[in-house]
Design a protein around this nucleic acid. Structure first.
Lengths: 326, 326
DNA sequence: CACGAACTCTGGAACGTTCCAGATCATGAG
DNA sequence: CTCATGATCTGGAACGTTCCAGAGTTCGTG
């Protein structure tokens, strides 16, 4: 494996200076058509490929985008990551992926590693992140967060959907279908979860159903069964779950208990991830515009590169996708 | 945002040469304890972080691992990617992810982009890849493929599970449960799919059930229903699906038709991905040792870096995980 | 006391590119 | 014929590291 040809090799072959090769390859128009031709031909013959590293070192831009994601096991996350990668590619950026950044310690380590690689920007896809960590990272490169922090973090752009509104859509749909005792199933104390819960409570109140508010809380790895059974025993006829994964759990439990969905229990999820279509019956779910969210995050970073200094916090509007489960 | 301090700044502050700073930071033991102390303190005070780019340029190694994956929508793929990332991290490598490389054109583009970034190695996670594309990429950096090509590709290491054997496990289990008319559901013409199909056919033959071999083929986005119905009508009592996604489809269809699983139809999947646990009833599935496969792929690359030139093709042994669906 | 062997430390080249200031040359205006 | 102008091209510095050859100091030994 002979070592990769450089711009100098091309220059020698074309009989010009390395500087001119650089200009020609970058399409600068101070190069005469004839020599440009010659240079491109030489590059081609040698199989020259530019060294992105050297360019990055000199230009102070790597065209690298760091993407930090809590985990890939929730399809919603992977779909956001895919949309970020797609948008990045459109702008000639490559994505560096770090997953498993649930714990703050690991997230810090991954952010540092990405920073050392001089990424031009960072997208954090997570339902939560330590504000200080984000700000530390933002001192190196602009950061856009897809997902919520408790409140806007100074210096960090964000893209979100309106969780309260999404929750209201879900509750509204169930109320319209005649449900009154609507429970909320959640295992999250993170901002997105809390916002959906608050949205649920407000929506219940606005429909005059305060007295039927019932939140089924459980620990991260606790089963949903006991809480659901208790709610069912109290006449609860519908569940609005914090996300599709939890909705799936509710459907599973109904399946195990032989309860018909939606007749015996109506279920609405959140995210409208691939899971919603895999569920039986298919899951009615609040749709987050994922593709748009990823693209928007990349756009926010590009604006930062262009010089924007004011923070932007984008909140997109979710919509309800009605299927068979409610 | 003042520009990042460099090794030279640290040197100035500690009153030594940049070379010595470099040595001290890398833990070389030709540096006296006292000055090392002083240098580390200076680095700390300035908030120095090394520039991985400059190091990579000089050392001709980026510590970057390119991971190319067909798509992230099959949980099996994401789990392999996660395991690769985990193994990479253990060795101080960062993962550059490119997804959506189903089409050869896109895969070529992504491989080129990763090559330009001078990745030290490539892991291709896909059920198929154009051998020439892989070999072209391997001219730049060693390539390990997780997944099958029709036959071993010269110069490319690979990690696989033994699909034929896995298929035999599935069939064996169904036969032991008393099934004779066992169909195979597949929508794939890729090597892994073909191997599982062949394994199914051989296993059926070895149990003296040649006459009951029945392959339900369908197009990539065609429903599984019609083929399944026809098979059921002919007395088929079990299905061995090419992967969990297809098994899921079979369960769905059974659900839609009100057929009890496993009494009315036994279903066995392949991959034992997260989907298997999400299925109702829970899916009996052939387990591929994903975590091991990702780690092994990284190990194969490391061996290449260490100088191995002979190809290695690792084939791991799958095992059957019995759950409720069969 | 001289000398070589550690032990520490240093300056400059190199990695492959881009940037910058300027060199060269033909052209056309005065 | 001269000179400014624009078009085309060039050499060297710079990016932040690591590598290499060697310089200076200290110390033990004969």
């Amino acid at each position: 494996m002979r070592s990769r040809p450089t711009i100098v090799d091309v220059a020698a072959r074309a009989g010009v200076s390395k500087s001119l090769v650089s200009l020609a390859l970058r399409g600068d128009d101070g190069v005469s058509p004839a020599t440009r031709e010659r240079i491109l031909a030489a590059a081609d013959e040698l199989g020259y490929r530019s060294n992105a590293l050297a360019r990055a070192l000199r230009q102070h831009r790597t065209m690298l985008l760091g993407v930090v994601v809590g985990s890939l096991d929730n399809p919603y996350h992977t779909e956001v990551v895919e949309s970020v990668e797609r948008a990045a590619e459109r702008h000639g950026l490559s994505v560096l992926l770090a997953h498993g950044a649930r714990r703050a310690g690991r997230m810090a380590a991954r952010l540092d590693a990405l920073g050392d690689l001089d990424v031009d920007g960072l997208v954090v896809v997570s339902s939560w992140a330590d504000p200080e960590l984000l700000q530390a990272a933002a001192r190196r490169a602009p950061v856009a967060m897809v997902g919520r922090s408790l409140e806007p973090v100074a210096g960090i752009d964000s893209v979100n959907n309106d969780d309260e509104r999404g929750a209201a859509l879900a509750v509204g749909h169930l109320v319209a279908a005649g449900h009154e005792r609507i429970a909320h199933l959640t295992s999250s104390r993170r901002p997105a979860g809390l916002a959906r819960r608050a949205g649920y409570e407000h929506a219940m109140a606005s429909h005059g159903l305060d007295r039927h508010v019932r939140v089924i809380e459980r620990g991260r790895d606790e089963p949903a069964g006991p809480g659901l059974d208790a709610a069912l025993a109290d006449g609860c006829s519908a569940v609005f779950a914090r996300n599709d994964v939890e909705a799936f759990d509710a459907l599973d439990h109904a399946w195990d208990r032989g309860i018909d969905v939606p007749a015996g229990l109506a279920v609405v999820g959140y995210d409208d991830s691939a899971l919603a279509l895999r569920a039986r019956p298919r899951l009615t779910s609040v749709h987050q515009p994922r593709a748009e969210m990823g693209a928007l995050a990349v756009e926010l970073l590009r604006e930062r590169w262009a010089g924007r200094t004011a923070d932007r916090h984008e909140v997109l509007t979710p919509r309800l996708v009605v299927r068979a489960s409610a």
